[in-house]
Computed example of a mutant assay.
Amino acid sequence: MYREWDLPSPLVRCAWSATVEVNGTWLQPATEFWGLGFSSTADGPTAELLGPAAAPQEMCLRAGDTSWGVEFAAHVFFRGVSKDAATQVMPLPVHESTFELAGFALTLPAPTELSTLVDDLRRRGLLTAEEQVAAALDGRVDRTVSTRTLRRRVHSTVGLNRQQVAVIVRARQAFALLSEGVPVAEVVVRAGYSDQAHLTRSLRTLAGRTPREILLTDR
Rank of each mutant, 00 (worst) to 15 (best):
residue 103 G to S: 11
residue 94 V to P: 04
residue 16 W to N: 10
residue 139 G to M: 05
residue 219 R to L: 12
residue 149 T to S: 02
residue 52 P to K: 06
residue 135 A to F: 03
residue 47 A to W: 13
residue 56 P to I: 09
residue 160 L to D: 10
residue 72 F to Q: 01
residue 128 T to W: 08
residue 29 P to E: 04
residue 24 G to H: 10
residue 105 A to Q: 15
residue 198 H to W: 09
residue 161 N to G: 08
residue 193 Y to V: 04
residue 189 V to H: 04
residue 209 R to E: 14
residue 131 E to W: 11
residue 72 F to K: 04
residue 105 A to R: 15
residue 187 V to K: 00
residue 111 P to S: 02
residue 210 T to I: 05
residue 63 A to P: 00
residue 69 G to A: 00
residue 91 P to M: 14
residue 75 H to K: 10
residue 95 H to N: 06
residue 112 T to P: 02
residue 169 V to N: 01
residue 138 D to N: 14
residue 185 A to I: 12
residue 187 V to N: 00
residue 174 A to H: 06
residue 188 V to N: 00
residue 188 V to G: 00
residue 39 S to H: 14
residue 180 E to Q: 00
residue 77 F to D: 02
residue 28 Q to M: 15
residue 68 W to P: 02
residue 185 A to H: 11
residue 47 A to R: 08
residue 67 S to P: 05
residue 110 A to D: 15
residue 58 E to T: 15
residue 69 G to I: 00
residue 37 G to K: 09
residue 98 T to N: 13
residue 105 A to S: 15
residue 114 L to M: 10
residue 102 A to H: 05
residue 95 H to L: 03
residue 26 W to P: 01
residue 204 R to T: 06
residue 4 E to D: 13
residue 29 P to H: 05
residue 62 R to I: 01
residue 117 L to P: 01
residue 107 T to Y: 10
residue 150 L to T: 15
residue 61 L to M: 04
residue 173 Q to E: 09
residue 145 V to S: 01
residue 145 V to C: 04
residue 90 M to Q: 13
residue 138 D to F: 04
residue 216 L to M: 09
